[in-house]
């Protein structure tokens, strides 16, 4: 058994275990994304970083314990780093949530996005209506494609199309896919604009979202013709 000090709290864990075990035993938690106990501990996602006294950041899922090891699981720097890492992950995430198998909110990324306040995942990630059930496919002007997730998608769960009350996703490719799908499914674009203006028009910083929507509308309407 070795003694590990997690956030000042002493715990004993068996030799050969990793820092994450000690953290769990001490009653703290760190976010983990790629870690899967017994299957994968290659420390690729870097969400579970913890801080050593010398200022080094190490992944708790793969760092072996040693006697007297001191660990900090939460600090300004760690939070910033984790948040940034999450932002990086989301930056290359395809964001095709409308066809993701983890529909209805079973998305780890989304959980962390909520925890760290990172925006960019559309409501479709939480919406249980995918494929045929999608409100857009049924012709309703649902703004779920364009709206920041985190609400749990209560409206689409009840069959009401999303009104975008949480504000728009500002990523260009997400907007592009959304507009493309709106046009594909023949939604009246005037409805769409009216809906977008409902909650978003009061924020000047969302103007470029409107610009992008118009830009891609032009593009895809042209293609359709």
């Amino acid at each position: 058994m070795v003694k590990v000090i997690v956030n000042g709290k002493e715990v004993e864990v068996s030799e050969g275990s990793v820092v994450l075990d000690a953290i769990k035993k001490a009653g703290y938690s760190v976010p983990t994304l790629c870690f899967f106990k017994g299957v994968y501990n290659e420390a690729a996602c870097r969400m579970c970083l913890v801080e050593l006294p010398n200022g080094k950041l190490v992944p708790s899922c793969a760092y072996p314990v040693s006697d007297g090891l001191k660990i900090t699981t939460d600090s300004e720097r760690l939070r910033k780093t984790r948040r940034m890492v999450l932002e990086l992950i989301l930056a290359v995430h395809k964001m095709k949530c409308y066809q993701c198998a983890r529909k209805g909110g079973f998305c780890l990324l989304l959980d962390f996005a909520k925890e760290f306040g990172v925006e960019g995942i559309p409501v479709c990630a939480e919406c249980p209506l995918h494929g045929e059930d999608c409100l857009l496919v049924k012709g309703e002007p649902c703004l779920g494609f364009l709206t920041i997730a985190g609400c749990g998608s209560p409206c689409t769960r009840e069959g009401t199309p999303c009104f975008g009350c949480r504000g728009p996703v500002t990523r260009e490719d997400v907007i592009e896919t959304a507009v493309k799908r709106f046009i594909e499914h023949g939604v009246d674009l005037r409805d769409l604009h009216s809906r977008m203006k409902l909650f978003w028009s009061s924020f000047p910083q969302f103007k470029h979202v409107f610009d992008l929507v118009l830009k891609y509308e032009k593009k895809y309407m042209g293609e359709k013709k």
Binding site: A44, C45, R46, L88, I89, A91, V92
Partner: peptide, 12 residues
Amino acid sequence: GKCFPCRIGMKI
């Protein structure tokens, strides 16, 4: 391309 900070961060 194994860890995100290097793979994506450097690209950005």
